[in-house]
Design a protein around this nucleic acid. Structure first.
Length: 154
DNA sequence: GCTGAGCGG
C-alpha cells in the first residue's frame, strides 16, 4: 500500500479538524489560528509516523533501498585499447541495464590494460553474462565473466 | 607508440 502526498494531506487535515474540535470543546480560551497551527504541528508528527508504518518514502524521501534489482559486477576482458567508457556503456546498455563502467588503464603510464568492470542491474546474472559474452565490439570479441574479487557485498 | 593474456581503486 502506498501513501502519497495526497493521502498525507488528507490525514493532516483530518487531524487538524480533530485537534480543533478537541481544543474547542476543552473550554480553553484559544484563538483559531493558534489552534489550527497546533493541530497542524501535531499532524505533522503523526502523519510521517503513519507513513513510516506503511513503508512509504513520500515523507522521509529516503534514497533507493535497492529494490529495483540486484547489481552484479562483471568482468569484461579483451576490450579494444581504443575504447572509452562511454562507448562501452552505450554498447552494453542496449543489452542490459548498465549502472557503471570502469575501464582499467594504468595510472602511471595511462596505457589501457584492455579489460574493465561493469555493474549491471539484472535479476539473473548468468543470463546477463550469456547476453554479453562473446559480443563483438569494435572488431573485438568481448569476454564477460562474473567478477572474481571485490564481490558486491550487500 | 604499437600490443592482446588478463580480475581492479
Amino acid at each position: 500500500m502506498k501513501v502519497g502526498f495526497i493521502q498525507c494531506a488528507i490525514i493532516s487535515v483530518i487531524f487538524a479538524v480533530i485537534g480543533y474540535l478537541v481544543f474547542s470543546s476543552s473550554g480553553m480560551e484559544t484563538s483559531l489560528p493558534l489552534t489550527v497551527a497546533a493541530s497542524l504541528l501535531f499532524s505533522g508528527i503523526v502523519t510521517p509516523y503513519l507513513a513510516s508504518l506503511f513503508g512509504t518514502s513520500a515523507i522521509t524521501a529516503e534514497p533507493e533501498s535497492g529494490v529495483s534489482g540486484e547489481t552484479a559486477t562483471l568482468y569484461v576482458g579483451n576490450l579494444p585499447y581504443k575504447a572509452n567508457e562511454d562507448a562501452v556503456k552505450e554498447y552494453f546498455n542496449s543489452y542490459v541495464n548498465v549502472q557503471s563502467v570502469r575501464l582499467m588503464k594504468d595510472r602511471r603510464t595511462g596505457k589501457r590494460k584492455g579489460y574493465g568492470f561493469i555493474e549491471v542491474v539484472t535479476s539473473d546474472v548468468d543470463q546477463a553474462i550469456t547476453e554479453l559474452n562473446d559480443k563483438v565490439f569494435l572488431e573485438r570479441t568481448l569476454k564477460v565473466r562474473p567478477a572474481k574479487e571485490k564481490g558486491e557485498m550487500e
